[in-house]
Nucleic acid binder design. Structure first.
Lengths: 244, 244
DNA sequence: TCTTCTCAGTCATCATACAACAGTTGATAT
DNA sequence: ATATCAACTGTTGTATGATGACTGAGAAGA
């Protein structure tokens, strides 16, 4: 498999050049996930792959390094490279999907809602007084930011994240934190103006306050309900907005 | 007599010698995630890092390749290596945490519960007749497996996954699928025997049937409730079991 | 039988060289 | 004076040879 003149008119997205090492890594990834290389089996040795793919050791090694970083294989000095027998380590990523921008946002929001509704309930059960204090602080900072005319999206997210941390469940908090960047930097801004903005913000603040109070009261059902109402409204808003 | 029992325990929790490239990759990762290298900024050139870390170019390049595979940086030939402007691409992984085995299981289960409860509601709203048919099939396969004495954990998960897919939300389904390996291969088996097992399985089947029926009736509230009951019981079971 | 040694195979690292690409500079032609 | 282009510098990408470190198994020795 010599180089097959891949340079002609490949799909030249803005990204452009498909590095050889990425090419090889992709092929190996396909072999593994396609089941042709079962967990525990040994990959061809470096020299074998050098011949098989017709590339240099540099390329092969960088490809293996990439797979190894994903936990898909692990290399053992003096023995060889083996497919991980515990594929549970391969990471989870959102976004390499062929959804429209609208579906993308809506689905992320639904995912977020599912998690946060229950998280609010857990937080209400388990929040420490320290948690409560920080949640209230985050609430104040959010209100302050919005009052001073800022977007407040970051403070909004910080409020939600603090609630997730109050669940005492590190995985839930970690996942919410992971979801953050997918939610915050939405450039599609709803440019509400003047009085309309006031009304909108007031409703938003009330929803947030309801959540905060339910958690303060350690009222699980109320916290779940308040969070569901809050996120459902945001979801409906997004659904209609991006529709146009 | 060469029974191919290469089932080695891959318990290499502490790899005696962390590879140099992984070491460097870790340091760079810390610099980036710690905010010392802002998105868009250029990393030191390869030669600079060679000096700075006192390693060879091979090591530096493999470290960068690993980060690049995670989407943390992207290298451009002739220009340099840059911190990704959209850190939203860095993957999510569970497990590299220092939780006890018990907390690990319980927290994963809680994460799963949060998602699946809401997913059941969405599935009830949106399931197609095709979805329903497959959910019912999965249910039958699960019952059949358990009746024939098998564990049935895989069929159980397949049932839940099929419900997640009925939400029509690819991200939710994808995440449930990701969670699968963390749930299924629990070796900590509760060796219930004889009649006790019968009773346990009967209750389990009834819970599953309730979920299935609620989804069939497109009754959102009932589906949520049934799923919550089902997973809460499983969670409580896990909590007490691993306690000992 | 048991221990020790040797050896071939493999990945890990180092070093060097060249190719491909991007940006800058400066000479040249008009 | 301006435009064009060639050369130069610095960067990542790829190729290659050499050496070290580690593993497993068989050979050699007691």
């Amino acid at each position: 498999m010599r180089d097959d003149k891949a340079g002609e008119l490949e799909l030249r997205s803005f990204k452009g050049r498909p590095k050889l090492s990425e090419e090889i890594a992709g092929q190996l990834r396909q072999l593994i996930q396609g089941g042709e290389l079962m967990p525990g089996t040994q990959l061809p040795t470096e020299n074998a792959m050098i011949e098989q793919f017709g590339v240099s050791r540099t390329v092969v090694r960088e490809a293996v390094a990439a797979l190894s970083a994903d936990g898909l294989v692990n290399a053992r000095q003096g023995r060889g490279v083996f497919v991980a027998n515990d594929l549970t380590q391969q990471p989870f990523r959102l976004g390499d999907s062929r959804l429209s921008e609208r579906d993308h946002i809506v689905q992320i929001m639904e995912l977020r809602l599912s998690l946060e509704v229950e998280a609010a309930g857990l937080a209400a059960q388990r929040r420490t007084s320290e948690d409560l204090r920080e949640i209230e602080d985050a609430f104040e900072r959010m209100v302050e930011a919005q009052r001073s005319g800022q977007e407040g999206a970051e403070q909004d997210f910080a409020f939600h994240l603090r609630i997730a941390e109050a669940t005492q469940n590190t995985y839930i908090a970690k996942f919410i934190r992971y979801l953050g960047p997918f939610i915050i930097p939405r450039p599609a801004r709803r440019t509400v103006t003047g009085g309309e903005r006031e009304v909108y913000l007031e409703g938003l603040t009330q929803e947030h306050a309801n959540i905060r109070d339910a958690i303060a009261d350690q009222d699980e059902a109320a916290a779940i309900e308040a969070m569901r109402i809050h996120l459902s409204r945001g979801l409906a808003l997004n659904r209609s907005l991006v529709q146009s």
